[in-house]
Amino acid sequence: MTLQELYAARVAKGRITPDPAQEAALAPLETIRAKLAEPDRRGLFGRRKAPEGSMGCYLWGGVGRGKSMLMDLFHEAAPVPSRRVHFHAFMQEIHDGMHRARAAGQTDVVGPVAEAVIADTRVLCFDEMQITDITDAMVVARLFDKLFAGGVHVVTTSNRRPDDLYKDGLNRALFLPFIEMVKERMIVHELASPRDWRQDRLTGETRYFVGGGALDDVWARLSGGRSEGLTLRVKGRDLRLEDFASGVARASFADLCGRPLGAGDYLALARAVRVLILTDVPRLDRAHHNETRRFVTLIDALYEAGVKLIVSAEAEPEDLSGTDVFEFERTASRLREMQAEDWGKDASAGQGP
Rank of each mutant, 00 (worst) to 15 (best):
V275E: 05
P353E: 15
A50H: 14
V210A: 07
E329L: 12
Y7P: 08
E30T: 10
T31N: 09
E291N: 12
G150M: 14
E304S: 12
D324H: 12
L269E: 08
A137K: 04
V11R: 03
D216L: 00
D136S: 11
L239I: 03
A245Q: 15
R221W: 01
R240T: 06
G213N: 10
G169T: 06
D19T: 02
A114W: 06
G352C: 09
A25K: 12
Q4K: 10
G150F: 15
V85F: 02
R48F: 01
L191D: 07
L26M: 13
A245M: 14
E52L: 10
A141E: 15
L6F: 06
L276P: 04
D324Y: 05
E52N: 05
R84L: 14
M69W: 10
M186T: 13
E341G: 01
F244K: 05
H189N: 05
E314W: 01
L284N: 08
I187E: 15
A301C: 12
K67D: 07
Y166W: 01
S333A: 12
D319M: 12
V182P: 06
G43M: 14
D96C: 05
A101N: 08
I179T: 13
D324M: 12
H88K: 06
R122K: 13
E5L: 14
D108F: 01
G14E: 10
P317C: 11
E291T: 04
R233F: 02
T135S: 15
T135E: 07
D108K: 04
D136K: 11
M181H: 08
Q351N: 14
P282I: 03
D280W: 00
L191H: 06
Q92E: 04
V273Q: 04
E316Y: 08
A347W: 14
R226H: 12
D120W: 03
L59E: 13
C257K: 07
Q199C: 07
G236D: 12
H189V: 02
M91I: 01
F87C: 10
G43Q: 10
Q92N: 14
A77F: 03
E318I: 05
F87A: 08
S193V: 08
K308T: 15
D19Q: 02
I94T: 14
T323Y: 08
